[in-house]
Simulated assay, not measured.
Amino acid sequence: MQKRSSDHAQGIDISHWQGTINWEQVRAAGKVFAFIKASEGSTVKDKQFLTNVQKATAAGLLVGAYHFSRATSPAGVKIEVDHFLSVVSPVTNDMKLPLVLDIETKEAGSKANIVKTVRAWVEYFKQRTGKYPMIYTFPNFIDTSLDASFGDIKLWYAYYNNDGTPINRGGWKDWEFLQYSSSGKVKGISGDVDMNEYHGSEKELRDKYDPTMVTPPPTEIDGKSPLWKETGRQWLIDELGISEDWKATDVVDIGTLGTILSRAMNNKG
């Protein structure tokens, strides 16, 4: 498998355990994407899921959702998949990243039964959606509970040894996303959060999963205005005669907004 790289797009994964998140600050901290817990087993719905998806998307992050499986046999996967899809259905159009099967516990017992159960899960998911989910798992689970038959499915790999190159496991020779820490610190989130990266740059990530999106720039950090705000400020000065004393970092109060709108309407006429 490939190594991590400083050029790779950075992101996080979260659930309700992270509490209320300031997604604008997360985006300003350079995080490009987020995987958000939607559901678990056949009945559990993450209570923060819809809010997190809507606010993360509004802040400019690419979003995916994951389901924590508790299926004990192939016969039990249908209810889980149906539950997962019902939970994500209100925000399906907001999510550009893959939907994920999180498989990391051994409710299904033996390796043979786990393999059959996971295969049944992904196949039924494909029947419902037309595509496979991505699989989230970790090295020991692959070694003890999966086989090479899943190599055709994208891997979100929990791999915390950052010193070397991950070896190929099961049928996988690369990873799509890598979770490399469970104790990250990100502005806008209280406490620890899982840290992740994509296997390419932010541009490559967006080109692949949301090629039509106009990328919103991150909010300024430490009082420095991003280029888009400086460009807008200059346009207001040049076209509407706004005072050069007005800075892009200034709060737009109602008086300033009224002046801008009034001059814009006059220029239009």
Rank of each mutant, 00 (worst) to 15 (best):
Y66L: 14
Q179D: 13
L205P: 00
W23I: 02
T72E: 06
W23A: 01
E244S: 15
D7S: 11
S39V: 07
T105H: 12
A112Y: 04
K229W: 09
I221T: 12
F84W: 06
Q25V: 15
D207W: 04
T137K: 01
L61P: 00
V53I: 12
V87R: 01
M95R: 03
A29W: 06
V118P: 00
S149W: 07
V214M: 09
K126E: 09
V251P: 01
E24K: 08
D250W: 13
V214E: 08
E244D: 12
K268I: 06
L261I: 13
A264K: 06
V44L: 15
I103G: 01
H8L: 02
W175I: 11
V186E: 05
F49P: 00
S73L: 05
G232E: 07
I103C: 08
A112K: 08
A158V: 07
A28K: 00
Y180T: 14
V118D: 01
N52F: 04
V193C: 02
D194A: 05
R263A: 04
V251G: 09
D143A: 04
K203D: 15
G184F: 08
P139S: 06
N93E: 08
L50R: 04
T259H: 06
S149R: 12
Y66W: 10
V32C: 06
E104F: 04
T249C: 15
M213V: 11
W121A: 03
G164D: 13
I36Q: 02
I36T: 10
D143P: 00
G184Q: 04
G255T: 10
S262R: 07
N266H: 07
R206Y: 11
F138I: 10
A120C: 13
S145Y: 13
V115N: 03
G171F: 14
S5I: 05
Y157G: 01
K126A: 09
I254G: 14
G170L: 15
F141K: 11
G130I: 07
I142C: 04
A38P: 00
D152V: 11
I142A: 05
D46Q: 02
K111Y: 09
I254W: 10
G109K: 13
A71K: 01
T144H: 11
S69Q: 14
G241A: 13
V81M: 03
P226H: 12
Q54C: 11
N93C: 07
E197R: 02
A29D: 11
G151N: 10
M1P: 00
